[in-house]
Amino acid sequence: MESFLAYLTAIERSPNTVKAYTHDLKDWWSYLDGRGLDWKLVDLEVVAAFVA
């Protein structure tokens, strides 16, 4: 996650964009962790439940 955020900064994305990604990715990882899910095995159903 940190390397992706560094990449966004390196390509001069807005600090607000980087901050938003940081927040959303933190929520995503917390969601997966709270359900005991491995990110490598996530399917569309899991993503849809997260977005909902």
Score class of each variant (00 low, 15 high):
residue 1 M to G: 13
residue 1 M to T: 09
residue 2 E to I: 02
residue 3 S to I: 00
residue 3 S to D: 14
residue 3 S to N: 09
residue 4 F to S: 05
residue 4 F to Q: 04
residue 4 F to D: 07
residue 4 F to A: 06
residue 5 L to M: 05
residue 5 L to R: 01
residue 6 A to E: 13
residue 7 Y to L: 12
residue 8 L to W: 02
residue 8 L to A: 05
residue 8 L to H: 03
residue 10 A to N: 11
residue 11 I to Y: 08
residue 12 E to K: 12
residue 12 E to T: 08
residue 13 R to Y: 12
residue 13 R to E: 10
residue 13 R to G: 04
residue 13 R to N: 13
residue 14 S to T: 09
residue 14 S to Q: 06
residue 14 S to P: 00
residue 14 S to W: 02
residue 16 N to S: 13
residue 16 N to P: 00
residue 16 N to I: 01
residue 16 N to M: 06
residue 17 T to K: 01
residue 17 T to P: 00
residue 17 T to Q: 05
residue 18 V to W: 08
residue 18 V to Y: 08
residue 20 A to S: 15
residue 20 A to P: 00
residue 20 A to W: 06
residue 22 T to W: 04
residue 22 T to G: 12
residue 22 T to D: 13
residue 23 H to F: 14
residue 24 D to F: 07
residue 24 D to H: 11
residue 24 D to Y: 11
residue 24 D to L: 04
residue 24 D to V: 02
residue 25 L to I: 13
residue 25 L to Q: 03
residue 25 L to W: 02
residue 25 L to K: 02
residue 26 K to E: 15
residue 26 K to V: 11
residue 27 D to F: 04
residue 27 D to Q: 15
residue 28 W to T: 02
residue 30 S to D: 15
residue 30 S to Y: 13
residue 33 D to I: 03
residue 33 D to L: 12
residue 33 D to V: 05
residue 33 D to T: 14
residue 33 D to S: 15
residue 34 G to P: 01
residue 35 R to N: 12
residue 35 R to P: 00
residue 35 R to G: 10
residue 36 G to K: 04
residue 36 G to E: 08
residue 36 G to I: 03
residue 37 L to Q: 09
residue 38 D to K: 08
residue 39 W to A: 15
residue 40 K to M: 12
residue 40 K to A: 15
residue 40 K to V: 06
residue 40 K to F: 10
residue 41 L to W: 05
residue 41 L to D: 15
residue 41 L to E: 15
residue 42 V to F: 07
residue 42 V to E: 09
residue 43 D to T: 11
residue 44 L to I: 03
residue 44 L to C: 07
residue 44 L to T: 13
residue 44 L to N: 11
residue 45 E to Y: 05
residue 45 E to V: 07
residue 45 E to C: 00
residue 46 V to L: 03
residue 46 V to H: 10
residue 47 V to G: 07
residue 47 V to E: 10
residue 48 A to H: 10
residue 49 A to C: 01
residue 49 A to N: 08
residue 49 A to G: 02
residue 50 F to E: 07
residue 50 F to V: 02
residue 50 F to A: 07
residue 51 V to Y: 13
residue 52 A to N: 14
residue 52 A to V: 07
residue 52 A to C: 05
